[in-house]
Simulated scan of single mutants.
Amino acid sequence: MIHCEGLVKIYKAADLEVFALQGLDLQVEAGELMAIIGNSGSGKSTLLNMLGGLDRPTAGVLQVNGLDLLRAGERDLIRYKRETVGFVWQNNARNLIPYLTALENVELPILLTGRSKRQRALYLLEAVGLAHRAGNKLNQLSGGEQQRVAIAIALANSPKLLLADEPTGSVDTRMAEQILDLFRELNRNAGITIVIVTHDPQLAKKVDRVVAIRDGKTSSEMIRKKSYAEELAELEMGLAEAETETHVEYAVLDKAGRLQVPAGYLESIGAKNANKVKLEVADGRIIIMPPESAEGKG
């Protein structure tokens, strides 16, 4: 569904150039439910905007559902945004029109397709558990209910890819759980590929794969030992206890053999501020040592 290779994005302001993405690689299979995490300024929102067709890469490869988003014309991009991708923003003001009812908000994007909007909109509100609130204006809905209306809007044109930018950032823990459960249900029942961008590492416990971005590159991946569904089934049957470590973390190795070593690892061997380290191969393992340790050993 998503293929990124050597993705670069440079923003220019006056004489200043800012590298938001610096050769990012990412693969997402069709039907995946995955999360992208990273600190503020890591490049995750830049990536999301490009996946949504809202911004273009400076260089590299970016293909979504077979469309080359670097070279696509304006007409293809408009069709892509209407038919392929749906967006859920953290700020509900970007999703919703306040003077319309929940039903009217969902009907609006369906108007562009010429389909019967009322039936489709009611179906989507029911899918997100809000059929009983169809006639309510936004000021009559809670933050979590508004976010679920936003999800229904994002699904209005049956997208193949759903992008969610901090979808649980403005709701409480209980509502965040419900929204994530809704994403899982949509992913499982409708087969929609869902990419959630967040700074919250707790999301790692809810999805099967998490990609971490640091300094504009993918730095590590966390892959669940067992699928979330398998884990829940075992817990319900009393066959297993909840694991504290649900995922295995892998460093990402690019085609040139480069990887990002977590800062905590480097700090633990006294090499946090070093600009070079010593590598050795021993017993089938690659050992990283700080420069002073390597020099002393020599």
Rank of each mutant, 00 (worst) to 15 (best):
G114W: 07
G135Q: 14
A72P: 02
K297Q: 07
R285V: 10
M175R: 06
K137Q: 12
K297M: 10
E245C: 10
S268F: 09
S40T: 07
P201K: 02
A263D: 12
T244R: 03
N275E: 11
S220M: 11
S158H: 09
V61R: 00
V18W: 00
E231K: 01
M289G: 09
I223C: 11
D165K: 07
S220E: 13
V207R: 00
V252P: 03
N49L: 11
I10Q: 08
Q63W: 04
Q147K: 08
S142W: 03
E83G: 15
E107G: 03
M237Q: 14
V207F: 09
Q178W: 09
M34F: 07
A35Q: 03
I223W: 03
T113W: 05
V61S: 06
Q27Y: 12
L203N: 00
T101F: 08
G41C: 04
V128K: 06
E17H: 02
L239Y: 04
D25G: 00
L77D: 13
L70A: 11
T46A: 02
E243C: 06
P98M: 06
N139M: 10
V106N: 12
R224M: 09
V88R: 09
F183Y: 10
R258G: 00
L26E: 08
D15K: 10
A20C: 02
E74L: 14
G284A: 10
A164N: 08
T246A: 14
L203K: 00
L239V: 03
D172G: 00
I287L: 15
Y11A: 08
P290L: 01
R214M: 06
S219T: 02
K276W: 00
E243R: 06
Q140T: 03
